[in-house]
C-alpha cells in the first residue's frame, strides 16, 4: 500500500505545479469560452494571437454547457469573451445579467436584426434556414411559398428534417412566435402524419436529397454551399428561401459577448472588434460559407444576398425559449 501512495503524492504534486497560471493581471492575456467548433475557429484565433501579441486561452465546449458554466462561475468567471453557436444561449446569458453592454459604435457595425436589442451581444456571422430540394425532380416554382405548405399530401414521405438538431429547434421556436403555439402544433402534427423522414443531422438530410431518397429537406444554408463548393455547379441540391417573413427562412447568428467581471474588458472588446473586421469576416465567408455581417464583406458567390432574405419578425434573443419547443416536439411525437 505504501508505494501507490507515494506515486499518488508525486502525481498530485506534479499536477499542482503544472497549473500555476496566477490570477490574471499579466499583460496580453485573453480567455475565451468558445461554443464554436475548434476546427473551425482555432485558425482565426491563432491569427489574432499572433497579430496582437496576445496570449489567447480557449476553453472549447458545447454552446449551452459553456453558457451554464459562466452562469455558475458568476463574477469569478475566468472567461473574458463568450463565443456562441446561436443567439439563444447569448439571450439566456443576457437575461441572467452575465454580459457587459457593448459600445454603440461596435453594435452599429451590424444590422440591428442580428444583435441584441439591449446591446449585450453582437452577431458575428449568420446562418439561414433554407429549403433544400432535388433540382433533378423539382423547379423552384414547384415548391410551396411557405414551409407551412409542406404538410400538403403532395409532399407525403418526401420531406426530411432533423428533430434533435439545435438549429431545427430554433426554427420551431421561431414558428411558435410567428404562427402561435396552436399554429406550430398543427403544422408539426400534419408533418408527422405526412410521414416526414427524421434524420440525425443536417448533413444526412442534404446527402439524402442528393441521393434522391427524399425531394425536400429543411436545413441550414451552408451545408449546401459547402457541398456545392466541393462538387461543382452540377451538384443536384438547390436552395430556396421562402419569402414573406416565413419561419422557414429564419436567419440565426453565431455571436459574441463580453463576460461580466472580465479582468480584460478592453482587450475583450478589441477581440470582438477583430471578429467584425474585414479579415475575420472574410474568413467566415470563405471558410464556413456563413453570411458575413460586417465590414461590407460579400458572402460566398452563389448565395442569395442576406438582405433579400425576408427574416421573420422574431427577436433572436427570444430563441432562448428552447424548453417550450422541446415540450411541443414531445407532445406532438416529433421527438
Amino acid at each position: 500500500m505504501r508505494k501507490p501512495l507515494t506515486i499518488l503524492g508525486l502525481l498530485i504534486a506534479a499536477a499542482l505545479s503544472g497549473c500555476g497560471f496566477g490570477g490574471g493581471g499579466g499583460s496580453g492575456e485573453l480567455t475565451i469560452y468558445s461554443g464554436r467548433d475548434q476546427d473551425l475557429i482555432a485558425p482565426l484565433l491563432e491569427r489574432y494571437a499572433e497579430q496582437e501579441g496576445v496570449d489567447v486561452k480557449v476553453r472549447y465546449g458545447s454552446t449551452p454547457e459553456l453558457a451554464a458554466t459562466i452562469n455558475e462561475e458568476g463574477d469569478a468567471s475566468p472567461a473574458d469573451v463568450y463565443l456562441s453557436q446561436d443567439a439563444g444561449a447569448l439571450g439566456s446569458l443576457q437575461s441572467e445579467g452575465r454580459l457587459e453592454r457593448l459600445p454603440a459604435e461596435m453594435l452599429e457595425r451590424v444590422d440591428r436584426r442580428f444583435r441584441s436589442p439591449q446591446g449585450d451581444w453582437v452577431g458575428i456571422s449568420a446562418r439561414a434556414r433554407i429549403v433544400a430540394y432535388d433540382k433533378r425532380r423539382l423547379k423552384k416554382s414547384d415548391l410551396p411559398r411557405s414551409v407551412l405548405g409542406l404538410s400538403a399530401s403532395r409532399w407525403k414521405g418526401k420531406v426530411g428534417w432533423a428533430p434533435t438538431n439545435a438549429s431545427f429547434e430554433g426554427f420551431v421556436t421561431a414558428m411558435r412566435k410567428t404562427e402561435g403555439e396552436a399554429g406550430a402544433e398543427r403544422w408539426l402534427r400534419a408533418m408527422k402524419a405526412g410521414d416526414t423522414q427524421a434524420y440525425e443531422n443536417n448533413i444526412a438530410i442534404r446527402d439524402a436529397v442528393a441521393k434522391g431518397e427524399i425531394e425536400v429537406g429543411l436545413i441550414n444554408h451552408y451545408y449546401v454551399a459547402e457541398a456545392r463548393a466541393e462538387e461543382g455547379p452540377d451538384y443536384p441540391v438547390g436552395v430556396f428561401e421562402p419569402p414573406g417573413g416565413d419561419p422557414g427562412a429564419l436567419v440565426n447568428v453565431a455571436g459574441a459577448g463580453v463576460v461580466t467581471g472580465s479582468d480584460h474588458e478592453g482587450r475583450a472588446r478589441e477581440f470582438i472588434s477583430f471578429l467584425l473586421s474585414a479579415q475575420a469576416q472574410r474568413y467566415f465567408a470563405d471558410r464556413t460559407k456563413e453570411y458575413p455581417l460586417a465590414a461590407g464583406v460579400r458572402p460566398e458567390r452563389g448565395l442569395v444576398p442576406l438582405r433579400s432574405i425576408e427574416q421573420p419578425d422574431v427577436d433572436l434573443s427570444d430563441l432562448a425559449d428552447l424548453q417550450g419547443t422541446i415540450d411541443l416536439l414531445e407532445r406532438t411525437g416529433v421527438l
Binding site: P64, L322, Q323
Partner: peptide, 18 residues
C-alpha cells in the same frame, strides 16, 4: 431519444433555466 431525467436536465441547462 429516450426522454429520461438526464436528457431533460441537460435541456433545462441549455436554456438557461438553472
Amino acid at each position: 431519444r429516450f426522454d429520461s431525467f438526464t436528457r431533460v436536465i441537460y435541456t433545462a441547462y441549455g436554456t438557461g433555466s438553472r
